[in-house]
Design a binder for these strands. Structure first.
Length: 901
DNA sequence: GAGTCAACTTAGGAAATTCGGA
DNA sequence: TCCGAATTTCCTAAGTTGACTC
């Protein structure tokens, strides 16, 4: 897998205003943009613009200073100034342009230069072997003075050369002369671990988890009742609020109505958005357990050292898990094999093969007979008739029907995942130390259900009793268990389209919109804090800068038994490298072990800070932000805006960027062109959020085919041209543009292409012959003989001989009935088809490693899509699939064409 | 105040389904 | 109508956040 390799793509299909950012445009959080439109929203933040967008030459290093805006504008918040993505060719994303303290344009980024494996394997990340080693010694405060920024981090900590204590050091002051703080902690405090602020007054906790949750929620419940939280932000927002349809308060529909109508329009109610009590009555059937294991036919056996093994069902099932995967990458992965084999051996110890063979090496295990059996079964399934398939589906639906819906306060609501996860091998991503581990089969005894007090207790569909039954109406899960591999909790929730999820989704976007009002101040604050004399503050400011500008995730600490992935706060020394004067290169594995690789031009102060945070004695494996935790960041943010956390910036920046980029929609374009603009905006957001997908295995084959198709079109064009010249040799002078040969039209290709065409023509002739005969027979007429077919095939071959002659002579006789006019028209059409095919191929290439769905589902306010669809008269179903429409009914109801984020 | 846990959101890959062109 | 490609849905892993405990 690789990080999107946008650096290479230089496709020129760009929306207006995007000229500099052909394809890889790494869109950014609201950022300075070349097209400073008159609207307030688009005013530049800074004097300096994003170079990459400004010069349009794809060179991110170009003009960092572009005195577009007045100095007064410099002070303007980024939020007012959506950033523009940079182009494919742009090597860098500029975050901030100069030493100036003023905030500025968004970063210009260079994406990974070349595709590299998305999941970086084995490239052992030098990670401290224990948590304590992760914390580097604290730098001395004096290092923080401006003049001293360049100096390495505190020597004092360096003396012992040992990694700092596990705890993050406490807030530390800078004792610079220039910035001498009067209330800074003494240096002795430097040694103290960073404080994670304590939770507010501890509440008595009961011994059971559910009881404690309940007590916790009770407190919340008391707070609730005041609708404040539920008031949509937009109500208080001039423009946006004004535009909102007046549906909200109007109707206080009685619930009974909703019971009739499946679609409960919670957004029309004064529903509790984030209150504590989530339901009053709740009925459901908990989970559906998978059917018990069915042993394989007796003749299907794995082999060990060539000997077929007769395994008891218990061990055969586990063998089958691996057997089904032998042709996947997992089966070749050393860690996966190691973990699987460890668990497999343990099962074999308990359920050994009849043959009494001791299985000692995975290499001697041959699961192929099992694999082939599974393949045959798949084929059989595929080969079933429509009716057979239908019958199976009906039986399955019938069995699942009772589990699909829950009844919440009398309303039918769909469940998300009602199936208990089947046993299998844990498919941890990236270098997960537990990948390959056996995931046990769940039993009712593993599962706690959460259900209304009055509701009938569901009976598990397999023998056994639930582990527990609780009636906690402050949570939204219906069933819960702990998986055996990592000890993680798993839940059954309602579906994405349910009112619970809808409400929290809407609240999430409203929170992001609320940030618009605060973001200027927040940016000003962290920009000032970049120079703070307190190390912790300076680190926090720098981290916030990245969270805001680069859409980094918060980055919690992770355990040793998890994949080594990081986010902002957990970045380590080796994840950022500095290239003077102001380029920071990020290279780390983020969530899901997705590589984040970007070269970013940053504010000079940020550059200085990173240098400081990396200074000796810090070394590989040490935390970059050794005085920072996610909870400190979030505490700080919460102080600036209630409910603000690091992740809100991703939502905010994603939606903001999307809104900005949608402005490039061609007003008079076709629906297809508008959708292309929409997808481009979507892609910008996906790149901003680093949403990747692995390039499909046969992408190159696909691309080759598409290229051949384009060449085939060019071949046709050439034939048309040559006919034209035969018809009117003078036209070459009249239309010199037609005189030029098509590119990529070498003899080799033409020969190959003609051979392909001949083969197809012969094939088609044979098919037609057979088809005609069937028809003749049906009509009771005499069938054609083989001689007829041979005759036809002969004709075709002769025609193709002609092609060869034409190729050699570069002359084509005009086909019967053609005229110059017709040929010109055909050539024009061919040109269009070639152009379209090229654009399509380019688009495919640009999107081959970018996943659009994640941002559409989670980050882009759906009201933006609804409003855009209305404004540009594009059917919503072209943008939202059925499930997305089910997920966002509230957006459809709320947003009109003028809705803005 | 560090560590743990509960509850929820976000995420990519696999499987299923639909689409579209020959 | 068939078949491969594209899109959608399903599945479950992997995050974030904040409360709670020790």
């Amino acid at each position: 897998m690789s990080a999107p390799s946008h650096a290479a793509d230089g496709m020129a299909v760009v929306a207006p205003n995007f000229e500099s950012t052909p394809s890889t445009l790494v869109t950014h959080a609201p950022q300075v943009d070349e097209d400073m439109s008159s609207s307030e929203d688009e005013k530049p933040l800074l004097k300096r613009k994003n170079t990459t967008t400004a010069n349009g030459n794809g060179n991110g290093n170009g003009n960092q200073q572009s005195g577009g805006a007045s100095s007064s504008e410099d002070e303007k918040p980024l939020s007012k100034k959506p950033r523009v993505s940079n182009g494919a060719a742009n090597k860098k994303r500029r975050v901030v342009a100069s030493d100036s303290d003023e905030s500025d344009a968004g970063p210009s980024v260079k994406k990974e230069p070349e595709p590299t494996p998305k999941k970086v394997n084995g490239t052992a990340k030098p990670r401290s072997s224990n948590a304590s080693a992760k914390k580097a010694p604290p730098p001395s405060d004096s290092d923080l003075s401006d003049s001293e920024d360049e100096k390495p981090l505190a020597k004092k900590a360096a003396t012992n050369g040992k990694p700092a204590s596990k705890a993050k050091p406490k807030k530390k002051a800078v004792s610079s002369d220039e910035e001498s703080p009067n209330s800074e902690p003494s240096s002795s405090e430097d040694e103290k671990p960073l404080a994670k602020k304590k939770a507010p007054a501890a509440k008595p906790r009961t011994s059971s988890a559910s009881a404690s949750a309940a007590s916790r929620k009770k407190v919340k419940a008391e707070v609730k009742s005041e609708d404040e939280d539920d008031v949509p932000l937009a109500k208080g927002k001039g423009k946006a609020a004004d535009k909102k349809p007046a549906v909200k308060k109007e109707k206080k529909v009685k619930q009974e109505d909703d019971e009739e109508d499946d679609s409960y329009k919670w957004w029309e109610q004064d529903a509790n958005g984030d209150g504590s009590v989530k339901w009053t009555t709740l009925e459901h059937n908990a989970v559906l357990f998978p059917p018990p294991y069915v042993p394989l036919p007796k003749n299907v056996k794995m082999k060990y050292d060539g000997v077929p093994l007769t395994l008891p069902p218990e061990s055969e099932e586990v063998a089958g898990f691996f057997g089904a995967m032998i042709e996947t990458d997992h089966a070749a992965d050393a860690k996966f094999r190691e973990n699987f084999f460890k668990d497999f051996k343990a099962v074999l110890d308990q359920y050994p093969p009849k043959e009494n063979v001791k299985v000692k090496s995975l290499d001697k295990c041959d699961f192929r007979p099992m694999f082939e059996h599974f393949e045959r079964e798949k084929e059989k399934k595929k080969a079933m008739t429509k009716d057979e398939k239908k019958a199976i589906k009906e039986a399955k639906d019938k069995m699942e029907a009772p589990y699909i819906y829950a009844t919440v306060d009398g309303r039918k609501e769909k469940l998300g995942n009602f199936r208990a996860e089947p046993p299998g091998l844990f498919r941890g991503r990236g270098e997960h130390p537990k990948k390959g581990t056996l995931k046990h089969r769940l039993r009712p005894e593993d599962i706690i259900i959460n259900i209304g007090k009055e509701a009938p207790i569901p009976k598990p569909n397999i023998p056994g009793e639930w582990k527990g039954i609780q009636h906690d109406n402050t949570v939204t899960w219906l069933a819960h268990w702990k998986e055996n591999v990592n000890g993680n909790a798993k839940y059954v929730f309602l579906s994405a389209g349910s009112s619970w999820k809808g409400q929290s989704d809407r609240a999430k976007f409203e929170k992001a919109r609320e940030l618009i009002k605060h973001v200027d101040k927040i940016r000003k604050d962290y920009t000032a804090d970049l120079k703070s004399k307190v190390m912790a503050d300076r680190q926090r400011a720098t981290a916030l800068y990245f969270i805001d500008r680069l859409a980094l995730r918060a980055g919690n600490e992770k355990g040793e038994d998890e994949a080594d992935t990081v986010g902002c706060c957990s970045l380590r020394y080796e994840h950022v490298t500095l290239t003077p004067p102001n380029i920071v290169t990020f290279d780390f594995l983020g969530k899901d072990s997705m590589r984040f690789f970007q070269e970013v031009e940053v504010d000079a102060q940020v550059f200085k800070n990173i240098k400081l945070f990396k200074a000796e004695p810090k070394k590989k494996g040490d935390d970059l932000f050794d005085r920072l935790t996610t909870s400190l960041v979030n505490k700080h943010l919460n102080g600036m805006m209630p409910g603000l956390t690091a992740k809100v910036f991703r939502t905010y920046n994603a939606s903001w960027t999307f809104q900005k980029q949608l402005k490039n929609t061609p007003k008079n374009g076709t629906v297809a062109e508008k959708i292309a603009a929409y997808n481009t905006a979507n892609r910008d957001v996906a790149i901003l959020c680093n949403h990747q997908k692995s390039v499909s295995k046969n992408y190159d084959v696909m691309k080759g085919k598409a290229e051949d198709k384009i060449r085939a079109l060019k071949y046709q064009r050439m034939k048309l041209r040559l006919q034209l010249f035969s018809l009117d040799p003078k036209i070459k002078k009249k239309r010199p543009d037609l005189a030029a040969d098509e590119s990529d039209m070498d003899d080799d290709f033409m020969e190959r292409h003609e051979a392909d065409l001949l083969e197809k023509a012969l094939e088609n002739a044979k098919k037609k012959f057979e088809k005609d005969n069937v028809k003749l027979e049906e009509e009771g007429e005499k069938k054609k003989g083989k001689g007829d077919l041979d005759e036809r095939l002969k004709e075709i071959k002769a025609e193709f001989k002609e092609l060869k002659k034409e190729r050699k002579s570069r002359k084509v006789e005009p086909r019967r009935g053609v005229t110059e006019e017709k040929l010109l028209e055909q050539i024009n059409k061919m040109d269009e088809r070639i152009a379209t095919a090229k654009v399509q191929l380019g688009d495919k290439d640009k999107l081959k490693d970018v996943a659009l769905g994640t941002s559409k589902i989670n980050y882009i306010d759906p009201r933006l899509t609804v409003a855009w669809a209305k404004k540009y008269d594009v059917p919503l179903e072209k943008l939202f699939s059925k499930t997305l429409r089910e997920k966002f009914p509230w957006a459809e109801a709320e947003a009109d064409a003028s809705w803005v984020f």
